[in-house]
Every structure is written in structure tokens, then in C-alpha cells.
Design a protein around this nucleic acid. Structure first.
Lengths: 213, 213
DNA sequence: TGTTAAGCGGAGGCCGCCTCCGTATCTTCG
DNA sequence: CGAAGATACGGAGGCGGCCTCCGCTTAACA
């Protein structure tokens, strides 16, 4: 009555219910069994036929995206909050660390991030845009404050973050990821870059111009 | 006559030949089609049965390792050479950049590296040890010269490297990887870390102690 | 309650992984 | 050289996952 702009039928109750069931099952299965769990297993767990699963989520990726949408949104909102922090570099660091925790908690999260990062899959739009924007806002502030080098774009950072978390099923991966991210953030500071290679920073327009952004 | 310590039979000629054929075919197929090409395709290209392939290389990983052994060795030797360079930090940077080129040239190289990095697969020994040692030697020199922070171990660096290259089939990945690696190396410098978070460096024994190394 | 279209589900085709074993081929030794 | 025995070959076949397709079911609407 309220959100039906067209004179379309009301969606069938069983369809809605099944969609929800599949999502729930997928969440359980992915978080437990990692990202390459079989979709048949998800369907079985949801108590629906494999055909139903595929109708609601035509691709594996679509299912991932749906399952981890909420998490991506949370990360995005966290960035929003951190924008008000005093130290912009520290804010970015904090966000990245939170990202590590997210990955640690939800085993399937990496698959969702992979989706966002790899951009091959046509409809990676949602997560990519959300996360890129989140990072971008933190990055911009740090750059504007003159605390960070300007030749790294949000996509780069997202990819680096993903890369550092890549080994997320190694024993000590979490500590490793945090250490690596610290190093990376340190490297992002303007002072670091200037000390290391003064010329690289001196003419910032040159190297950057060649990228797509 | 020379390399047979036991009184074992001479290996059969056809076996040797087939092994070589499979390796050759695998190289072609992996470099072209990426890392998840079907092993049946490799067998067909080599003109051998699938059974033969599996006898020589019981797992997909074993085949990867065999195919990219030479490349890993080259990278390792490059590190050896770079040890004589003047600036140890620059030497490390150079090595990492060379790594990117390797990945760019041989498409299947990433799979071999994944194998080395992930340590799950029992026999990842060779590549892992080789690359870890290579990085370690470069790292140690830089640390000894007081130019780099001491709380990053070779495994960490290898993983970071791998992570930065992860998106190796994106359009502009190479430039991205190089940029990210630059940032990372800058972050490794002692000055960067001290400027950023003086206390983290002041007592180096604390945080590091908890790792396995 | 009847009509109708949206939705269900699983059989089945395809493909890749991997094993197993009957057959072919090579090495060795007399 | 020829026979015997060891070694390797190769592909059929079982398994399991991916995905599609279509006859049947069932909810929505009048």
C-alpha cells in the first residue's frame, strides 16, 4: 500500500519467506565453512530446492553481497563517525583495525571484500562504492590536513587492506595484519615519504596523472 | 651411474619424457589461462592421460611448485645480488619491484606464491623457505644498518608483498602494486615509525615477543 | 471459489577432480 | 636377442558441485 509505486502484485509470501531463509542459512554456512562452501549445502540447510536459491540469488556473488551487506554498511558508518576524530591519521588507522576485526569475526567477510575489490563481477557496485567512499572520506581529511601523501587513492588503500588480510586463515594472521597495516599507515604519512624519497613528493602531479583517477 | 646411491633401477625413459612434457604443457596453460585451468586441459595439451599427470604430480600444488621453481630461484638469486647494493632500503625496494614484474610476466606465478604464503599445503616448503630467506637477508641488512624497524619479519613482508599483488588481473594493477609497495617500504623505515608513533619503537621487545618468531 | 501468474524444486546435463586397474612398454638379465 | 618382471600409461568411472529448465504447486486477486 505504501511502497508500491506501480500497480504490481504483492510479492508472494512464500517467496519472501524463502529468501529470508536462504539468507539466514547462507550466513551460517559461509561464516562457518568459509567462502567456497557449496550452494547446495546452503539450499539444503535452508530447506529449499537449489532452484529456489538460484532464482533469488543468480550468482554466488549476489548471495555474498546480500549476506554481508549489513557488515559493509556498518564499516561504512564507522568511517562516518571517525571523521570527527581529532587526529585524522589515527582515525584511518582505527578504521583499518576495525576492518581486521570484522574479517576475524565473520569468516565469509573476506569473500565479500574480494568481491568489492576485484570489480570483475559486474555487480560488485554496492560494497565497492560504500567502502571506497568510507576510506576516501578518511583519506581526504588526512591529506587536507597535510598529514598524508596525496598520491594514494581510496581504491589503492582498499586493495592494500584486503591484501594484508588475505591470509586470514593462517594461525597468527590477525597480529600480522595489524602489524602490516601499521607499517602501511606509517608509510602514508607525508613525513615518511619526504624523508625517504623527497623528489617523489615534490612533483605530485606527474605520476598520478597516469591513473584512471 | 653417477647419481644413483641405491642399487635402484634406472628410471624409465618414457616416464622422464612424460614428466617433462607435462611440465611444459602446464607452463603454457597456467601462464595463459591463469591458475585455475583444468588439469585435464594440461594433460591433453601434454598428450598424456590424466592418470599420468596425477602420478607425476599428485596435487595441483605440486605441479605449480614444479613449474615455478625456476622463477622462485631466480627471485632468490636476485636477492643475493642485491645484498651488495649500497643502500639496503633501496635494495629491498628493488627486489619487491622485481617481484611485481615476475608476477606480471607469468600469470601463474601468483598461484605459486599463494602456495608459498599460505603454508596450508604441507609441501609448500621449497618456495616459502627460499623466498623467506631472500627477503630475510635483505631485511636483516637494513635493520642492522639501523634504517628499518626491527619488528617486521620476513614472513610478514612476504605476505604483504603477496597481498599487494593480489589484484593481479585488474587493469592497472601493476602501477597500483608498485605504489602500494613504495608506501609500505617507506613505512618500514625507522624514521617513519618514530615520527608516527615514537613509543612503538622505544620498547621493541614487547609487542614482538608474542609472535611465533 | 476460480483463474492466473509467480514461485517451487529437483532431475539432469556438464565439467572437473581424483582413483583404480587392465594393458602396454621399458629395463634387466640370462 | 628374448623372456620375465617391474614400472608406467591412460582413461573409464565414481563423486560432487554448478547451473538450467520445466512441470507442478500455491498464493494473490477478483
Amino acid at each position: 500500500m505504501d511502497d508500491q509505486t506501480d500497480q504490481t502484485r504483492k510479492p508472494r509470501a512464500d517467496a519472501v519467506r524463502n529468501r529470508e531463509r536462504v539468507l539466514e542459512a547462507a550466513k551460517l554456512v559461509f561464516n562457518a565453512g568459509g567462502s567456497e562452501a557449496s550452494l547446495e549445502a546452503v539450499a539444503k540447510r535452508a530447506g529449499v530446492g537449489i532452484g529456489t536459491l538460484y532464482r533469488h540469488f543468480p550468482t554466488r556473488e549476489a548471495l555474498f553481497e546480500a549476506v554481508y551487506r549489513r557488515e559493509v554498511e556498518q564499516l561504512s558508518e564507522l568511517a562516518e563517525q571517525l571523521k570527527n576524530a581529532k587526529d585524522p591519521v589515527e582515525a584511518l588507522r582505527r578504521w583499518l583495525r576495525s576492518g581486521v576485526e570484522f574479517v576475524a569475526t565473520k569468516k565469509g567477510m573476506m569473500a565479500a571484500l574480494a568481491l568489492a575489490v576485484q570489480s570483475g563481477s559486474e555487480l560488485h557496485a554496492f560494497s565497492f562504492e560504500r567502502l571506497t567512499k568510507a576510506i576516501g572520506s578518511l583519506l581526504d581529511r588526512a591529506v587536507a590536513a597535510g598529514e598524508m601523501r596525496a598520491d594514494i587513492n581510496p581504491e589503492d588503500l582498499l586493495r592494500a587492506f584486503f591484501g594484508m588480510c588475505y591470509v586470514h586463515d593462517q594461525p597468527g594472521w590477525q597480529a600480522t595484519a595489524l602489524r602490516l597495516l601499521d607499517v602501511f599507515v606509517d608509510g602514508l604519512r607525508v613525513q615518511a615519504a619526504m624523508k625517504a624519497r623527497p623528489r617523489a613528493i615534490a612533483k605530485p602531479g606527474k605520476k598520478v596523472a597516469k591513473q584512471k583517477r
